[in-house]
Write a protein that binds this DNA or RNA. Structure first.
Lengths: 230, 230
DNA sequence: CCACAGTATGTCAGTCAATGACAGTTTGCA
DNA sequence: TGCAAACTGTCATTGACTGACATACTGTGG
């Protein structure tokens, strides 16, 4: 419906340059598809600009569609909701994470595989948006908008199931009776969030800084759960 | 059948003793207060009945207010939103949990204190609703309604901060620089959710069953995070 | 008992997100 | 070229939620 791109991970707002230089795209890129992608990108771009300027809740869908010059109805054909648009970046990141997790060598234990997949997804996200602080911006936006945060948490919660399935498969356990995959997935999700938050308050460096924050969180889990902290 | 319950000695130590013997000036409980509480209870009751019958999203606020014979506007003076009403039970449970956590002996380490507080909050919730399966009903409702689940997750996320503060205070660490309290709070939240889910699929016995499910989850955290599972 | 102040409720109008129905337009392809 | 499918726009409608204003009710003091 709103997801396509099976393996192609390069999808950002500035693909006009590539479209201009390359006349014929190998596989699929009829004009219709190009236009759709263009409209979608334009909507996202305009929306983020407006969200940044006036805040998510004070931006009407009407304003977004006016900026792109499409009807309000069209907006809801591209995005299931206003939240859906705002979370499109998070979706991309999660897609990358899951793809990377699936590609992780089987020898890695769950936590190592998750860390590696996270690192890989960071690479994709940052490569995707080379010149702009879009990732930081969206993250801040989500965390500062209660309705968006709710949608984000639910979305992550939903996709946790996929992580559970992959982990259970990798380790050869039953995802229904064995709760270890669910526990790891849940804890991992929390750690990602905490690391992100930490990284953001540190000023938000590159992917390395983020990964370092994540590792710091992982290292604190054991001490945090065991006895007193004195 | 549902809330109030002054619960633990936190906010009502002042009038609890005085109101017992003297009836001169009933500081709290005039007819107005009683009526308000009555309407609130009636709204919750009617709403849950309708939610159970037709589902949350297919129940209009109008139907709820019609069942209680108040105006739609009044509904939104009692509850910030439709979600707010549906989560009122979760709020009560969280209140009880935090109150209990505050009352935990200082000698207990964080995880033990959290477990004890959880046990206590379960006692409150089940005592509160002796004859009806309201807790089970609401839990199912939340988990089967995406918009409600989103609101629930955000609400829990918000209140996690309070848990963090209490834990940091108990252990004498800085809740800003030290991330252990945040980690424990986050993991605890996940475990509560997982235990609840497990308990529910098991048919939902008493508070003991729930606590057993929670303990089972806690016991799996270590094994789940350490190496392979084979 | 009355009057007054404060608060709860009702009514009304309006915004905004989201959806269904229908008509008009563009694109892909035979 | 011409047709079918896919996009898009327009219109109408639902439902959550809010602000403004009028109207009742309750508690208190005279």
């Amino acid at each position: 419906m709103l997801r396509e791109v099976p393996a192609d991970a390069t999808a950002n707002a500035t693909n006009a340059t590539s479209a201009a230089s390359v006349t014929a795209t190998p596989v699929l890129a009829p004009r219709r598809e190009r236009k759709k992608r263009q409209t979608r990108e334009a909507l996202i771009h305009a929306a983020l600009r407006l969200f940044d300027a006036k805040g998510y809740e004070h931006t009407a869908v009407r304003e977004i569609t006016d900026a792109v010059d499409v009807s309000e109805r069209t907006f809801f054909r591209y995005f299931a909701s206003k939240e859906d648009l705002a979370l499109s970046f998070a979706k991309d990141g999660t897609d990358a994470l899951l793809a990377a997790l699936n590609a992780r060598p089987a020898a890695e234990d769950p936590l190592t595989a998750l860390r590696g997949a996270f690192r890989e997804s960071l690479r994709v996200v940052t490569t995707d948006d080379p010149g702009g602080p879009t990732y930081l911006l969206v993250t801040k936006l989500i965390d500062s908008t209660s309705s968006l945060l709710a949608a984000y948490l639910r979305y992550m919660h939903d996709r946790e199931d996929e992580v559970v399935r992959v982990l259970a498969e990798r380790e050869g356990v039953d995802p229904v009776t064995d709760m270890r995959p669910r526990i790891v997935a849940a804890v991992f999700g929390s750690l990602i969030y905490l690391a992100n938050r930490e990284w953001r308050t540190e000023g938000g460096g590159g992917a390395d800084a983020m990964l370092a924050a994540f590792d710091a969180c992982v290292g604190q889990v054991g001490p945090a759960l065991a006895g007193h902290w004195t």
